[in-house]
Design a protein around this nucleic acid. Structure first.
Lengths: 223, 223
DNA sequence: AGCGCCGATACCTCCGATGTATCGGCTCAT
DNA sequence: ATGAGCCGATACATCGGAGGTATCGGCGCT
C-alpha cells in the first residue's frame, strides 16, 4: 500500500479511536509527516483527500482541524459523488428517494412543531401562484428539506439532501415541458402541509409518494 | 479557491461534460498539470482526492483512468465515511436501513429468480443450526445483500451495503448478549426466504421490517 | 509460435525553497 | 486605560526537480 494510503488509514484510525476528537487540531504538517514517517507532500495528498470528504478542515495560516463529523457534513460528499451520474441512473436515485422521502415525511408528521409549519406555509405563500420554473424548483427543495429536517434523523436528512441534487435537474426539465406540472406541484405541497398540520402520518406519506411518483412516472416516459 | 480545488473541479467537469468518459485515460501527470496550470504536486493532491472516492483509478507505471463510475463503486466511499460514526449515530443509520431494507426486499419479491432463491436457501442450510456469532453475522450480511441485489436497483443496493457496516457491530454485540437472538434471526431469514419464493411482496416487507426492528429495539434499550 | 529480457513510460516519494493567509502580541494615538 | 492598526511568527500553499519503482510492450531467443 502506498504511503499516502497508509497515512489516510492512520489519520482515520486516530479519529475513530478517539485520539483525535471533532474540532481537534492536528499537529502541523511537518510534525505529522515526521510522526507518520512520510514526506510533507505525500501527507498533503492524504489530508487533501480527507478534506474533500469533509473529515478534515484545513485553514491556511491557522492549522488543520477535525470537522464536527456531523452526518450532515460527511454525507454532503454524497452529492459530489452523485453529480457524476446523469440520465442513465437518475431513475435509480429517484426510486431510492421515493422510498425515503415518504417515510421521512411520515416521521415528520408526528413531531413537527408549529413554528416549522408556519415557516413552511409562509414559504409556499411567498411563492405566489405562477412562479418561474427555477423559483418553483428552489422552493420545492427548501420545502422538502424543511420537512425532512423535522423527521429528527440527521442521517436520513443528509441522504435525501444528497439524492435531491440529481433529481433537481429532472424537475427543471419537467417544469419546462409539462404544462400542468407547476400547478400540480403547488397543490401537492399544500396537501402535504395540511397532512402534517393534522399530524396525519399516513396522509403525509401518501401525498409525498404521489408527489415523487409523478416526477418518476414523467421521467420514465420521457427517457 | 485553491489551485488544487480548482483542479478537482476541472477534472470533475471534464468527466461530467463527457470530455472524459468512464475507462478513459487521463493525460500523464506532467501534461495534465501543465494544461490545468499548476504543479505536479498540487495536481497529485487533486488526483488523490478523486481517487479516494473512486472517481479516478491510478495505476503506477501505467496511467490514471476514469473508473466505471458505477453507482456501486462510488457509493462504496460511503462506507468509508460511515466508519467515522460510532454508537451515537448508529441508531440513525439503523433507522434509515429500516426504511430501505423492507422496501428493497419487497421489490425483490416480484423479480427474484429461482437460481438466486436456491442460492440463498443453500446458504442458510450451510450455516447449520448453531453457528457462531461471527458466522451468523457474516451469513446475515450475505443473505441481505443477495436479496437487495435482486431488487434491481444498484443505487439502493450500494446504499444498503454502506449502511450495513455500522449496524454489523451492533448485531455482533446483540448476538453476544442476547440468548435467543441467533435462533430468532435464523427463523426470520427462513420466513423472508419463504415470502420471496411465494412472490409475496407484502409478507417479505413485513418480515424484513420485523427483522431490523428487533435489532433496533434491542439496541435502543441497551444504549 | 511462445517465452523471457529490457527499455520506455508513468506514477511514487522525497527534498528544499518561496509565497500567502491567519493569528496574536505590541505599539501608538486617543 | 482603551482601542485601532502594525508586524512578526506560524502554518498552510505552491512550486520545480531528482531519484525510485511498477507496468507495459517490443524484441530477440528458443
Amino acid at each position: 500500500m502506498a504511503v499516502t494510503d497508509e497515512a489516510i488509514e492512520k489519520i482515520k484510525g486516530m479519529i475513530v479511536s478517539g485520539a483525535l476528537r471533532p474540532g481537534d487540531r492536528l499537529p502541523k504538517e511537518s510534525e505529522l509527516a515526521a510522526d507518520l514517517g512520510l514526506s510533507r507532500n505525500s501527507l498533503r495528498e492524504a489530508v487533501r483527500a480527507l478534506s474533500l470528504i469533509r473529515i478534515l478542515d484545513v485553514r491556511q495560516g491557522d492549522g488543520t482541524y477535525v470537522t464536527s463529523l456531523d452526518p450532515q457534513l460527511l454525507l454532503e460528499a454524497l452529492s459530489f459523488v452523485v453529480d457524476f451520474h446523469r440520465d442513465d441512473t437518475v431513475l435509480e436515485f429517484l426510486a431510492v428517494r421515493r422510498i425515503l422521502e415518504p417515510a421521512a415525511t411520515a416521521m415528520a408528521a408526528t413531531r413537527i412543531d408549529e413554528a416549522r409549519l408556519d415557516t413552511l406555509a409562509a414559504q409556499l405563500d411567498a411563492l405566489g401562484a405562477a412562479p418561474s420554473v427555477e423559483e418553483l424548483v428552489a422552493s420545492d427543495l427548501e420545502f422538502h428539506r424543511g420537512i425532512v429536517q423535522s423527521s429528527g434523523n440527521s442521517v436520513l436528512c443528509s441522504l435525501l439532501d444528497g439524492l435531491s441534487g440529481p433529481t433537481t435537474r429532472a424537475r427543471v426539465w419537467r417544469g419546462l415541458t409539462q404544462e400542468d406540472a407547476v400547478s400540480r406541484t403547488l397543490h401537492e405541497h399544500r396537501a402535504i402541509l395540511a397532512a402534517l398540520r393534522d399530524g396525519d402520518a399516513e396522509a403525509a406519506r401518501s401525498w409525498a409518494t404521489v408527489h415523487i411518483a409523478s416526477v418518476e412516472q414523467w421521467l420514465r416516459s420521457t427517457l
